[in-house]
Structure formats: structure tokens, C-alpha cells
Nucleic acid binder design. Structure first.
Lengths: 142, 142
DNA sequence: CTAATCTCTCTAGGAACTAGAGCTTCAAGA
DNA sequence: TCTTGAAGCTCTAGTTCCTAGAGAGATTAG
């Protein structure tokens, strides 16, 4: 059994974040010492490792919650897990596509500016004022 | 002179967002009618278009604020604008690199799962439990 | 003049934490 | 055993960039 600080060190998840996850119901409420401090064991270490890894891969907490639910129900198939991962992959690809368009446009804007002149002649500012100067499409997110 | 709704329609920025920008000091407080409603003109239209475009390119409001400041000071050079845009570009490239690593890893995870078996044998869940199964690096965002 | 549509302010929520205040508990050394 | 300093506790508020809703007043078309 170890403390929240130790769990934090072993998983790389910050102490307040662990408490936050508990509050959100992502991890079960930990047992306490007589002095009201949380104590953890191997199970919680694994569970939090799972959450950490999924977060690193960009899964939102809601999705992680569903995955944890699934782990607890061995009677279901893993189709749901597969779907969640696929949705996450689609989301990542979508973001990449969008960021690449931004990269192109920003690259063009940065290249056009010497940084030497006065703001009135600044290519960066002019580009931002006039969407027609853009060569690629980039709408708002979503 | 036109209303906030009209400004919204013309710029694509939602009404509450315009009020929010005013509150944040990104746009000057608009003139009002006798009935206390905001009225806008050509200047505000341009200013908001600038903000909108910069937001579409992913600039945070703080950066946009700096760019607006710069526009108001013709005595300075546009070096600062150039730096801000460059920082934004770096940020975008950084995000792309990270997302590509995630794409690789998620693709591998999704491919490994048939969706048919029970959760105990699910490749998605197993991969998320065990970071060692990863072939690429992907830490947390910052 | 009335009805429908805006617009006003204010408050709260969302995602996923982070920071801080003020207090208690724990572990290790003297 | 006492003490000290680190670590833990709860609670609230702040972060970013908006979005949604309530309840009231303004404007405009017919």
C-alpha cells in the first residue's frame, strides 16, 4: 500500500489529477488510513496506468470511462472498444489534416514578412486582415 | 451602422462571442443606441474579421491582442508580428508531429482488434493497459 | 399597435485540469 | 518522545474560449 504521492510518482499522473479522476468516478474512491489519507495498491496502479496511456493517446475522459466500463463486463464483445479507438483515430486524422492546412498558410505568411518594416507594411498583419490572401482553405474548428 | 446580429452574420462570429471579445478588450466597446443596443460600422467589421481570421489560424487570443496592439503603433517594426506568427507556426508543427505519432499508434491498435472477441482478449484494451506494446513515442502534451 | 424577432445583462457550464489557502497527518531524526 | 518538514486533506477559484439559458427590454415589419 502506498500514498497518493507515490502513486503519482509511479504513474506520472499529478496528485491533484488523481484526486480529480476519483471525483469524476474514473477510479474508485481509494481506501483511507485512520488519518484520512488515501492508500493505493497494485490494482489502482494498473488502472491509473491505463488511464494515463489513453490520455496520452488523446482519448477524452468520457471515452476512457466507456472503456473502463467495458473492462468490467466480460460478457460483451470488444466491438465497442474498437469503435471508440476508431473514432479517436478519425478525430486525430481530422486534426492532422486541419493543422497541415494551417501550417501551409502560416508558413506562407511568415515567409512573406521580413520583420524589418513598420506594421503598416507588415505581411503578417495584412494577411490576417485579408482572408483573400490565403491560398488554402481553413475554416474554424468544426 | 448595424446591429450585433448583423455584424455576426457578416463576420461569422457568433453574437455572444462578439460580446465576449468586447469584454476581453479585443474590440473597443461599441457605441449604443438610445435603447442601449450596440451599433457597429465598417471599422469594427474589419477588426472583427481580422480576429476571426487569426482565430481560424489557431492564434490564441493573447497573441491576437498583441497583434492588435502592434497595429495601433506604427512606430514599431513588425518584428513582433513576425515572431508571433513564427511561434504559432512552431506550435502547429509541434502539434502535427505529435498527432502523427498518435495516428501511427492508434492505427496499429485499431488494426489489431477484430471487434469480435470478448474484452479480456481485446487488443485495444490490452494496448492501452500496456505501454510497452507501443512502437512509437507519445508522451503527454507538454 | 401588435407580434415576432432582436438584444440586453447576468449567471452557469464544459473539458481537463492547475493553483492556492488553510489545516492535518506522517515519517524520520535528535 | 518530541520536533520539524514534507506530504496529505478539503474547498474554492482560475485557466481558455467560448456556449446556453433566463428574464427583461428594444426594434421592426405589417
Amino acid at each position: 500500500m502506498f500514498s497518493i504521492g507515490e502513486l503519482s510518482r509511479r504513474t506520472g499522473v499529478k496528485v491533484p489529477t488523481i484526486r480529480y479522476y476519483e471525483e469524476m468516478g474514473l477510479i474508485a474512491a481509494a481506501g483511507r488510513t485512520s488519518g484520512n489519507q488515501r492508500r493505493y495498491g497494485r490494482d489502482e496502479l494498473e488502472q491509473l496506468g491505463f488511464i494515463r496511456h489513453a490520455r496520452d493517446l488523446g482519448f477524452p475522459l468520457g471515452a476512457i470511462s466507456s472503456l473502463i466500463e467495458l473492462q468490467r463486463h466480460p460478457d460483451r464483445t470488444c466491438q465497442e472498444a474498437s469503435d471508440i479507438a476508431q473514432a479517436q483515430l478519425d478525430d486525430v486524422r481530422h486534426k492532422i489534416a486541419r493543422l497541415k492546412a494551417l501550417e501551409t498558410e502560416l508558413g506562407r505568411i511568415v515567409d512573406g514578412c521580413s520583420g524589418k518594416g513598420p506594421p503598416q507594411e507588415c505581411y503578417v498583419l495584412a494577411s490576417l486582415s485579408d482572408h483573400d490572401m490565403c491560398k488554402t482553405e481553413h475554416g474554424p474548428d468544426h
